[in-house]
Design a protein around this nucleic acid. Structure first.
Lengths: 206, 206
DNA sequence: ATACGCTTAAAACGTTCGTTTCATACGCCC
DNA sequence: GGGCGTATGAAACGAACGTTTTAAGCGTAT
């Protein structure tokens, strides 16, 4: 279950990501985590201080990377002509789907993220909003440019629907049957295409 | 915290719904539930047998009603001419939003539902699919009639996105600031209108 | 009045939780 | 090679968990 080539810290993070995604933060115990990671029970408190802190580091590790990828993709999209609503959405979605189809634990993390949002966990929402909110705002602004005549309130409603659809789709993404004969890459590209079409049409609703 | 006019069973159900929505099934203990319900700790096991069974009865109570409302709304929509994609979506969404804006615990339940889906709880998914799957199929069939030329696979993707958007919109619904001067009824009607427009446009995407 | 079902109360059951303690092992520098 | 900081291991801590047990209350029918 755990690769001895990785350090104790990394083994704990991987095992925790997987188990928390499966059973929830309260549902998975440190005993399960450390057993699955093949490390001593005390190692969690030694390396992370507490269970709570382990969870924070879990999110930090993945969200730092996801946000960086999204920023990169958005900046690339913004300088490429012609700029379209679809290309912005793609810059938002692609890094997320890439993470969702990642074999190295990204799948688990995405489900963890969906769960954390459903939990309305205020602690986590603050964490996300404080550390990554500015990137989300940039996307909202870029999208708003394409619908100048749409009332602000309507736009917010629709962006809410879009994030809901994305979160849900991502957390399910690992489960959608990949048709045989398609590579992971093709499956992911297809999902991204489907989502971008759906979201763009929804945003442009008459 | 608990209304003494209601029976012990009902007080437990209400308190459990609220606390499970806030902290999760594993995160909220029967001691918290019974304390909040002003009931003896043993009452849960006496009336429901186990914590697990209490959870099942929670879902059954709400989903029975939600499904009945949806069926009624769909049947009414199907006989009303002219039949439109929007009216089918409305039959699907309205009962859910009605539940989501219900003061009597429906708000908590909707968040509980979103959480349960995010948890990918197989036990619950089976339960929902077994007991309420046929209604969902009826909606899918009714919707499919309006997009005869759309490939089946594309339709499934989009229905998936729609349910995701609805699930998360509902769980957030209680939190969206209701503009002052609007009644609950108006706010709900507005949310339904916004969602139906978004979903219909997404489903009809070119 | 008494016996009987149904419900509530209080206490205890054994288990598991997150965390801490303390001893042991390992690697590295002087 | 002895001393030392870092990491691991095994065991124990008190607290909280779901559940069970046992006793008390309470209305109703006999």
């Amino acid at each position: 279950m755990s690769n001895p080539h990785f350090s104790t810290k990394e083994r704990i993070l991987s095992a925790a990501e997987d188990l928390f995604a499966r059973s929830g933060f309260a549902g998975a115990s440190l005993r399960q985590v450390t057993a699955s990671a093949n490390v001593n029970l005390a190692a969690v408190n030694y390396h992370f201080g507490s269970k709570e802190n382990l969870i924070n580091e879990l999110f930090k590790r993945r969200l730092d990377e996801l946000t960086a990828e999204r920023t990169k993709a958005l900046n690339k999209a913004l300088v490429t002509k012609p700029l379209s609503l679809e290309s912005i959405l793609e810059a938002f979605v692609s890094p997320a789907l890439h993470l969702a189809s990642d074999r190295g634990g990204g799948q688990s993390f995405v489900r963890l993220l969906a769960r954390a949002f459903a939990e309305q966990d205020q602690r986590l929402r603050r964490f996300v909003s404080d550390n990554y909110g500015h990137v989300l705002k940039e996307f909202a602004k870029a999208i708003a440019q394409f619908m100048p005549e749409l009332p602000k309130e309507d736009l917010y409603w629709r962006l809410d629907f879009v994030s809901g659809a994305l979160t849900y789709a991502m957390s399910d993404f690992g489960m959608i049957k990949k048709p045989p004969g398609l590579t992971d890459e093709q499956h992911r590209a297809n999902a991204a295409k489907q989502f971008v079409r759906f979201a763009a049409a929804g945003l442009r609703a008459p």
